[in-house]
Design a protein around this nucleic acid. Structure first.
Lengths: 162, 162
DNA sequence: TATTGTTATACTCTATAACTATA
DNA sequence: TATAGTTATAGAGTATAACAATA
C-alpha cells in the first residue's frame, strides 16, 4: 500500500485539519473569518495605545463630526444610546473626548476630541493604515477600491432585505 | 439665497446624516459593516429555527466531520475548549447533537448530528443560501468566486502578520 | 408629549485558571 | 506529564426599561 494521505482526525499532528464543509464557500462565512482576523490583528497592533477597534471608530467619527451628540453618534454605528453612554464616559475619563453641553439644546452633549485624543487617534490611524497596506498587498492593483464598493453594496442589500 | 443643502446635524430629519470620515474608505471597516449586516440578516431570517450564525456553523462543521471531538471543533473556529463546552451542551439539550465517548480515547467526546439536527441544519442552510443569493445579486457574474478568494487571502495575510 | 442622556439590569460571547478523568 | 473536557469566574459588548432633565 502507498502512503496514507493526511486525514481529518490525524492524531500525529495535533493540528485541526478538520474540514469547514460548505461553510468555506459562503461569502457570509468568509466575511466573518476575514473580519475576525482584522480585529485580531488590530488588537495586536494597537498594543500600548490601548484602543479597541470600536474606540478607534468612535474617535474617528467624533473628529469627522465635531460637536456631534451621543444620539447621532449611536445612530451612525447602529448602536443604542445606552451603549454609547458608558463608552463615551470611558473616553472622557481618559481625557480623549471632551463633553460640553450643546449650545442649542441643554439635554445634549457636544462631543469633541481633546488635543490628547487627536494625538492618540493619529497614532492609531497610522497602525490602521499599516493594516490596510497588508490587505492591499493581497489584492491586484485597483482591486481594493472595487472590494470596498462590493462590501458596501452587500451591506446595503442585506439591510434592505425583508 | 438658494436652498440650503442638507448638512450633518440637520434637526429636521432626525436621521443620522453624520459622516464616517476616513473610516468609510478602510477595507477593515467596511468589512466589519458588511459582516454585521450579514449577522443581522441571518438572525432575522433564522426566525423560528432559533439558530444563531455560530450555532449554524457548529452544526455544519459536525456534519462535515462526523465524530469530531470538542478540541478539534474549537480549533477549527479559533475558540477555546472552554467556550465550546457549554455551546455543545446547549445543542445536546436541544437534541441536535449527539455526544458519545470516542472509541479510541475515553477522555474525548465523539460529536455527531441527530436526525433532528440534520433536519434543522438543512432548513437553516436553505436560509443561508437565500442570503447568499441576495449577496450574489449585488455582484457581477463570476465576481462572487473572486470575492471569496480575496477574503480568504486577507484572513491569511492578517493572521500571518507580526 | 417627545427627546437626550443615564442607570440598572441582563444576555451573549469570549477567555483564563483550576479541576477531574484519562492517556 | 500531557490532554480532553468541565466549571467558576470575569470582562467585553450589546440591549431593554425606567428614569430625570429639557424641549
Amino acid at each position: 500500500m502507498g502512503r496514507r494521505p493526511r486525514r481529518a482526525g490525524d492524531k500525529q499532528t495535533g493540528r485541526s485539519d478538520a474540514d469547514l464543509g460548505p461553510l468555506a464557500g459562503y461569502v457570509g462565512y468568509v466575511l466573518r473569518r476575514a473580519q475576525s482576523a482584522s480585529f485580531r490583528h488590530l488588537e495586536r497592533s494597537a498594543g500600548e495605545l490601548a484602543l479597541t477597534p470600536g474606540q478607534f471608530s468612535q474617535l474617528a467619527a467624533i473628529e469627522a463630526n465635531p460637536g456631534i451628540n451621543q444620539r447621532r453618534l449611536a445612530a451612525l454605528f447602529g448602536l443604542d444610546k445606552s451603549t454609547l453612554s458608558p463608552a463615551m464616559e470611558a473616553l472622557v475619563a481618559r481625557n480623549l473626548v471632551q463633553r460640553t453641553r450643546a449650545a442649542a439644546d441643554a439635554r445634549a452633549w457636544s462631543l469633541t476630541l481633546t488635543a490628547q485624543g487627536r494625538q492618540l487617534l493619529a497614532r492609531m490611524q497610522a497602525r490602521i493604515e499599516a493594516q490596510e497596506r497588508i490587505i492591499a498587498a493581497t489584492l491586484a492593483p485597483a482591486e481594493r477600491r472595487r472590494l470596498v464598493a462590493v462590501l458596501r453594496r452587500i451591506e446595503a442589500a442585506l439591510d434592505a432585505a425583508e
